[in-house]
Structures are given as structure tokens and as C-alpha cells.
Write a protein that binds this DNA or RNA. Sequence first.
DNA 1: TCTGGGGTCCTAGGACCC
DNA 2: TCTGGGGTCCTAGGACCC
Length: 445
Amino acid sequence: MNYPTIYALADCNHFYVSCERAFNPSLENKPVAVLSNNDGCVVALSPELKRLGVTRGTPWFKIKHLIKEHDIKIFSSNYTLYADMSFRVMTILERFTPDLELYSIDEAFLNFSGLNEPDFNRYGSTIRSVVRKYTGIPVSVGIAPTKTLAKLANRIAKKNGSGVFCIDNEQVRRKVLQRTGVDHIWGIGSRYAAKLRKRGIDNALQLSLVDDDKIARDMTIVGVRMVNELRGIPCSEESCSRLQDSDDIAWKKKASSFNTSYRDEPRKSIVSSKSFGRPVSKYRELQEALYCYCDTALKKLRDQGSVAKRITVYLTTNPFRNEPQYANYREAVLPGYSAYPPDFTEPAVKMLKSIYRKGFRYKKIGVMINDIILQEEAPIDIFDTAYIDDQRSDIMDCVDKINSRWGKGTVHFAGLGIKRRWEMRRQHLSPKYTTSWKELLVVKA
DNA sequence: TCTGGGGTCCTAGGACCC
DNA sequence: TCTGGGGTCCTAGGACCC
């Protein structure tokens, strides 16, 4: 392969469905759907269900009538199971490259640049069969000189049935671009796609021939990077740094004029919110949920070793219902950086009280944590002890340790409540096969 | 007829992803 | 009865400062 950089994108096929199938073989060859939180809409579906004309995002009550007729199997999202299966898949992928970048729960980029491998098609097939053998999950592998092209290659790999596709020369690259409609390019959503089609740009090849200035005007620098990736010029940050040790001047020059950030850095904002399983009107229950979401968000904050200073609270009624609507939010800035729940819940409750209006049926409440920095970067404040130096962080270390040893929620702050009548609906949940002793798969002798 | 210019910080909003 | 949740990045425009 004659490119200075080479990436593979390994993407699990209909991942959530595959996780369910891995423990329940009777689901093979059947139409299967996995639903979003609250069993709201379809987020993952098997090819058999796709063939019935169902698409991702369809509200599930709209396909309910098909269930009996076609024997559709329905599952609520079982994130505990999916996260654990994801971990297993990623651990195996790590064997095939010194440089693995997790991109989402079901896909990862493998950097193959500089790898001494004569046959990438064969290498891709090996990856597929090893992952399948050890986890039961089918993956597709797309290989190309840039991440954006690897995405396109992956799409072809999924379609052509072999599960592997490699863009390894200019002729193939052009052919692929020509056959890819603009709405199937990574980074182009429905808005941009419509705009481009209006201008007579229908496929990726046409787009790759438009000059940078025009692209920049419509799609900002983000679009320019994406189009260059289509041309085979890598524009992601580590691709750029990798190019520095390469000799290819032309690529280096081009790539250095862009830079983007795909990385494993701490989050810059953390959101915790969920729709309620049923409408909630009572202030008391909203407050209980608020405490709970604060708790989740701050746990994430501590897990990444960060502290934060800003919290937003918002609530809203259900816009799909024909009834009085209300939505509002408030934001508070803390006196200092912290990761201690009471520092956040106190202003959060005040804000909730100020935006709460009686008489509405609320659908959703949420918190957002912003202004996040690493603990060690927190400025020293002469009027206030830093979170990291005082008892608050010791308390939280202790709480986090107990909960990770004895299970989530073993110790918690009093506001969380115990009734949880607002909790989400999950009527079709499968067992936590791999993470709970009580729910292990039982094999009959 | 004329109204300084440039830097920085903040926020809202628009686009995208899985 | 019933329409997900959690993220990212970029830009424009206003406020403020010197």
C-alpha cells in the first residue's frame, strides 16, 4: 500500500443486537430490535428487521403492530451488558495494532501506518474471525489512508458481505468516492447533504473536486478537513504528528495546514439527564431525580480526575403531547472548583425551585456540568481550600470505593430518595450475562 | 460629513457523531 | 400510553478593555 498513513476502522455489526444474540442463539436470523431508554424508539436493528422497512429512530409504538405477524424480538437497552462486551472486543482489537483509538462503544480505529503487512485484506479477515471467535460479535473492517476513507471502506465492507474492504490505490479510491452519495459521508448530516445536492453535488467524488475556499464558506474548517481526507490527505491530529516522521513532503505540507482533535482527553462537559418513565408533576420527585443526576454526573467527573465550576439545571414538559408546555433552565457558577456533590446540589436545588412551575406534567429534567479542568490544574484560592486538599475529596474517595466494591448506590447522599417512582421504563430487559453472578447464563446438561 | 482598532472572553446557536 | 441520551467542534456577535 503506497500511502504514508493507513487506518482501519473496525465496526461491530448492529452491535446491541449482536450482544443479545451472543447469549441467545435463538435470535439468529430473526428480526430483532433494541430500544432506547424508556423503550422509546428503535436504536439498533437486525438486517431481518431492516428488510421489513423499519429504520433506526422509529418510535417503537409505530411498529408494534408488526411484532406478532413477523415474530419480532424486542429488547430494552442493557448498557451494562453492551459496555462489558465492548470492552472485550476492544481488548482483542488491541492485539492487532500498537495504536488503537476507541471511537464509540462499537467502533475503533486501528492505526496501521508503518506496519509491515503485505496483505491488509487478509489481516482484516483475521481480525474479524478472532473477534468473532472470542466474543461472538461480528465486525466489519474498512482500511484506507485516512479515517474518513476508512469509514467509507467500512460501509462497503458491510454491504459486500465479505466484511473487509481496502482502499489501497487511487483507482479504487476514485471508484469508491464516485459510488458514495454525499449523505453517506462521515461528517455530512442531512442539512449539509441537502445543501450540496441543491448545488448539484451528489457524490463524494464531485465533492472532493470542489476547492477549499468554497467548502470553507459553507461548511467551515471542519468541512475542509473532511474533504481533504476524502482526497487521501490525513487531517486528524495524530495523523499529522505521525506524518512528521514521514518523508512525504506533499502530504506533510497539506496536512499541517489543518489540525483537529480526535483524542482520549477528559470531557469538557458532562450531561446527565433522562426522560421520565411517566410524566412527573410533584416538585419532590423532580428534586429526587435532580439529586440522582447530579450524583451520576459528578461520579463521571471524579472518575476522570477533574473538578468543575459551573452547573446548569433544566427541565421540560413533553413537546409531543397536546397539553400546556413549559421549559426553562438556570446556570450557576460555584465559588471554587469542586467535585463534591453537596457543592453542586445546593445551588442546583435552588435553581430548580426557581424554575419549577406548578401544574405542568414534566417529561425530563437534567443537569450539565461545565467549566471542567483537571484536578491538578485547579488554581489555588487563598480564600478557599482547594477541593483536592480537604476532607471533601477524602470523603468522596471513600464513597466511590465502597460503591465500586459493594455495588452502585450502597452509600449515597440523603436527597436521592428510595422510591424512584420516576425511573425509566425497561420492560424488555435481558440479563446482565457477563457482569452479575446472579444473572449468568445457565446451560442445561 | 463624521464616528478608532484590535484583542479577548463569553454565549447562543448550528452543525455533526454514535 | 408511547418520539433517546450524551457528546464534540466551530462561528458570529456582543461586551469590555486598552
